[in-house]
Design a protein around this nucleic acid. Structure first.
Length: 273
DNA sequence: AATATTGTTCAGCA
DNA sequence: GTGCTGAACAATAT
């Protein structure tokens, strides 16, 4: 039997792997192309004034894209950097004719040589704006190291040292590690057989190593699948619903609020200790 | 029609 | 100062 959360399917939550595929998409459409014009349709998603953003982006050429955590940055000709965060329902869409403008489009980039890129955001939680530099932005927001850029075991365990919060909350804390959200924190703990409420300082060394290992493999696997390919059979992803059957051990998937977020886990192989 | 959904930010507390 | 928790916020589909 298949369990699919309809909203999730329609609007995949943009976490690290999704941002990674936005990066590829944006690169294929806009890299080294001149942005002729920018139109802000809803100022709510723009950091700062909409007009300032439109003027700042006008006639810019993007030389490179960088993903950091759940953020996407674009290097411009001018001495500023384009910052994008997709919130809960944000995405990028490319279209040719004006009539094809997607619903919930908040910002439009008109590209030289035709075509438009839309910053789409159904609920207006995404943010887009100009920042002085990616490095400054990371510093200002005190973001931890990116979870998918070769963080080694020593650095990972150093980040968790001295903390006492629940492992799920710690993994999702962007100051500890940047990029992991609700869905993939559940997946990492599911693969590791660890209950999401376990305090991080109660975990044994080998359990932490398991979490580290699964963090790497889950992020790598999901990035590779790019939302197109099927994820492995034993992933929680398609069974992330209360009452579903655990694809690993046949136990029951239960839902519980952990750190103010809904956590899904298997009652059997992620038992509370 | 009330509820559930998310990442970020911030107040309050130990 | 630091870490942790819980709430608020945005908008909308069910």
């Amino acid at each position: 039997m298949l369990f699919i959360i309809s909203e999730f399917k329609q609007f995949p939550m943009p976490e690290l792997p999704e941002i990674e595929s936005f990066k590829d998409f944006f690169e294929s459409k806009a890299l080294r192309k001149r942005i002729e014009k920018v139109k802000v349709k809803d100022e709510v998603v723009v950091s700062g004034k909409g007009k300032t953003f439109e003027e700042g982006m006008k006639n810019q050429i993007i030389s490179s894209f960088t993903r950091y955590g759940k953020y996407l940055f674009a290097d411009l000709e001018r001495d500023e950097t384009l910052m994008m965060h997709f919130g809960m329902t944000g995405k990028l869409k490319f279209y040719e004719d004006e009539a094809e403008e997607p619903k919930y489009t908040r910002v439009i980039f008109n590209l030289n040589g035709g075509g438009n890129l839309a910053f789409v955001c159904r609920r207006k939680l995404g943010r887009i704006g100009l920042v002085s530099s990616m490095e400054d932005f990371i510093k200002e927001h005190d973001l931890g190291p990116d979870a998918a850029k070769g963080l080694d075991w020593e650095a990972f365990s150093e980040r968790l040292k001295g903390r006492s919060g629940k492992i799920k909350s710690i993994l999702m804390n962007q100051q500890v590690l940047a990029g992991i959200g609700n869905v993939y924190s559940d997946e990492i703990l599911f693969q590791s057989g660890i209950n999401p409420s376990t305090p991080v300082n109660k975990l044994k060394e080998e359990e932490l190593q398991g979490i580290y290992k699964n963090m790497n493999s889950v992020l790598k696997t999901v990035i590779k699948a790019k939302g197109k390919d099927k994820l492995p059979e034993d992933y929680l992803h398609d069974h992330r619903k209360a009452g579903a059957e655990c694809p690993k051990c046949g136990g029951e998937i239960v839902k519980e609020t952990v750190g103010g977020r809904s956590a899904y886990y298997c009652r059997k192989h992620q038992e509370k200790k």
